[in-house]
Every structure is written in structure tokens, then in C-alpha cells.
């Protein structure tokens, strides 16, 4: 068996299509998921009541069950339960949106709850209005603290899109399989796809490491 890279360029368009689909799914599920995360985070911060208990359960549940199970459940059960026809891509986006909502909600909650107690007390004892405390004292440092966890989750999400190939979403891994079947150049296409994933995710991982180190440095100061 030889490693024949010449077969790759002729099929670049298909792979690029797959890559674009991967990115589109990521962006859409990020957007929908962030919206859901906001509600879940509010629910968890509200401390008691039905909204709190439901948020806690939803966050725990979707953070604990395997992504594959979630994807298959939505793909094969949701259409039956609601009598609706849903494309694989829509199902995939729904599954990943739930994943984003639960994880990002938890990241946001942790960011808000790690607010420095002393700074809050100082702001309150100055009589600063509540909405100003949120906008000026709580949220800006919370966003800064959340950044590494958020980007880290983004890398997990990008990796999770590959799982959508199992329900037939034509993203990169799916395309690589199809092209491998057609040309028998499995190794080449798989390696190329792995390289593309690495090229996208590695810079994000570097950012995470850098941002974490900076935060640790700030804390020790």
C-alpha cells in the first residue's frame, strides 16, 4: 500500500463542501445553543423555584449523556414523537444546540458565581444601582474568566460535529468515507481530514492554554 497524495486534489471540492457544512453546523448550533444557555443560566442563578430545578436537571442531563445517544435519539425518535419530517442536518443541529445550551449555561453560571465577593460588596456599599453592578462589575470580568472554558468547549463542539456523519450528515468525515469508498484511498482522505481538524482546533487549544496561564497569573498577583 502506498500513500498516494495525488488522488486528493481532484476531490478537494467535495471535502471543502464537507468542511463548510461542518463550520455551518457549528455556527448555527452555537447561535441556537447560546440562546438556550441564557435561559438555563438564568434559571440556575435564580436559586429556587421550578425554573431552577428544571435548569439544573436539563444542564446535568445533556452534559452527562453521550453525544451519540443524543444525536441518535433526536434523529430516530423526534420525528416519530412529533410526526414531523426532519432532515439529518436539522436533527444534528438540534442535538448539538442542546449540547451547547447545557455546557455554555454551566460555563456562564460558573463565570458569574466566581465573581469576587469583595468587589460585589464594595459596589453595593457604594449604592451602585443593581443593573450597573451587573454591567460593570459582574459581567466584564466574568466574560474574561469564561473565555478559556468557552473556547475549550468550542473545540469539543467542532470535534462532536464529526459524530453527525453517523446519521448521514455530509460533513467532512462523511465525505472522507464516501471518497474513500469511491477511490480506495481511505488512508489519504482520513489523514487529510484529521489534518484539517487539527489545523482548526490546535490554534484554539493554544489560545485556551495561553488564556488560562494569563488568568492564573492574574490571580496570583
Amino acid at each position: 500500500m502506498t500513500f498516494d497524495v495525488n488522488v486528493l486534489p481532484t476531490h478537494f471540492p467535495e471535502l471543502i463542501d464537507g468542511l463548510l457544512l461542518t463550520l455551518r453546523i457549528c455556527l448555527l448550533s452555537m447561535a441556537f445553543g447560546a440562546f438556550g444557555a441564557l435561559f438555563l443560566c438564568l434559571g440556575k442563578l435564580s436559586g429556587r423555584g421550578s425554573g431552577y430545578h428544571v435548569s439544573v436537571f436539563v444542564i446535568d442531563f445533556f452534559r452527562t449523556i453521550p453525544e451519540v445517544v443524543l444525536i441518535f435519539w433526536i434523529y430516530s425518535c423526534l420525528p416519530l414523537l412529533f410526526g414531523a419530517r426532519l432532515s439529518a442536518e436539522v436533527c444534528g443541529i438540534m442535538a448539538l444546540s442542546l449540547l451547547v445550551a447545557a455546557n455554555v449555561a454551566e460555563i456562564m453560571r460558573a463565570g458569574v458565581q466566581s465573581t469576587d465577593q469583595g468587589q460585589l460588596e464594595a459596589a453595593m456599599s457604594l449604592g451602585v444601582p443593581a443593573h450597573t453592578i451587573w454591567l460593570r462589575i459582574v459581567i466584564p470580568p466574568a466574560l474574561q474568566r469564561m473565555a478559556p472554558a468557552f473556547v475549550n468547549f468550542m473545540t469539543e463542539l467542532i470535534k462532536a460535529t464529526s459524530l453527525l456523519s453517523t446519521i448521514g450528515v455530509a460533513e467532512m468525515v462523511y465525505q472522507a468515507n464516501v471518497l474513500g469508498n469511491r477511490t480506495f484511498a481511505y488512508v489519504e482522505f482520513l489523514t487529510l481530514v484529521a489534518t484539517i481538524f487539527f489545523a482548526i482546533i490546535f490554534p484554539l487549544s493554544l489560545f485556551v492554554r495561553h488564556a488560562e496561564a494569563r488568568l492564573a497569573h492574574q490571580k496570583s498577583r
Partner: peptide, 14 residues
């Protein structure tokens, strides 16, 4: 709180 000023041990500057 607006009429009483408070100074903390840990400064608590923003």
C-alpha cells in the same frame, strides 16, 4: 449605603 462609606480590609477595588 449611599450615605455611609465603607472601606474593606482587602481594598476591593474594581
Amino acid at each position: 449605603r449611599r450615605r455611609a462609606g465603607m472601606v474593606f480590609q482587602g481594598f476591593n477595588l474594581f
